[in-house]
Amino acid sequence: MKAFELIKQKSYEIEHAGEKWQVIQDADILDLAEKLRLPPSKVAYLSTSANVLPLRYLKNIGTITIKQQAILCDTKILVAGCGGLGGTLIHLALRIGFGTIRCVDPDRFEAANANRQWFHFSGYEGMPKVDAIAKESKKINPLVTVEPVRGKLNLQHLKGIQIVLDGLDNPSDRLDLDGWCKERKIPFVHGAVRGIWGQIHTILPDAESRLEAIYSNLSDNRQQGKDSSLEEKYGILAHTVTLVASLQISEAVKLALGFPPSFSKHLLYIDLEQAVFLKVPLDSIT
């Protein structure tokens, strides 16, 4: 029997917000995936494409359409770095229902990650971050394919990726990643945080100005970009990380759905001390 027919068989009708919807539950998608020997993310995509909505996405609809949900279910993103920003990016991408999330990070959890890193749970000290993500992501959304990669990010990790999200922890690695995104012509959603300050900038494949405009103070000394000791004395608070990652995911959704991103011509600088969001034109960056 064809996949579509099996999906339809397992679906049922509900009424929501005055409209009738054909929906399907996670457990049935997972059963079908096993039967059809397909990844659950593929079955979720086929289902959504056939107007059978995985019930877990019901409250996405209205803001996005079922067709747009199908596009998200078929989108493959890379989250580079799985710490504060990365963990939040992955969690949000799982909830909203991107199809595939490749997660790359070389590190293990430490106790001091717990203040802001969403995949750090008590007792997870010493566990590789990507192992925790592989384990916990199934509980958050089993319909997403998570590709955990333990290691230092390299160009090969961008293969097959449609959108790259920045969850790295130093400018130097970010400049490398930006160069690879340029080479592979993949949109890059940069985000960075410190203390109660954060910044977001989306770099499209044809952008004239790239990340070095923001980290120009490091252009002569890339090693300095790896040294975060000066910044580390300011720490990083959970809500700063979550705010910046949320805006990065907002950009990723727009990019996936073909809408113009909001921060490709600007740097958004967030200062939570004064509670201001500064949308700075790129030519105003010194």
Partner: peptide, 28 residues
């Protein structure tokens, strides 16, 4: 930022302004 408006290194100050100076941040 000078009085809430984007400014540059060459911006001339007239007095009584409120100036905000921000660095790039690099953590994650």
């Amino acid at each position: 930022m000078v009085n809430g408006v984007h400014a540059s290194l060459d911006t001339q100050l007239e007095g009584n302004e409120r100036i905000g100076l921000f660095p790039a941040v690099g953590g994650g």
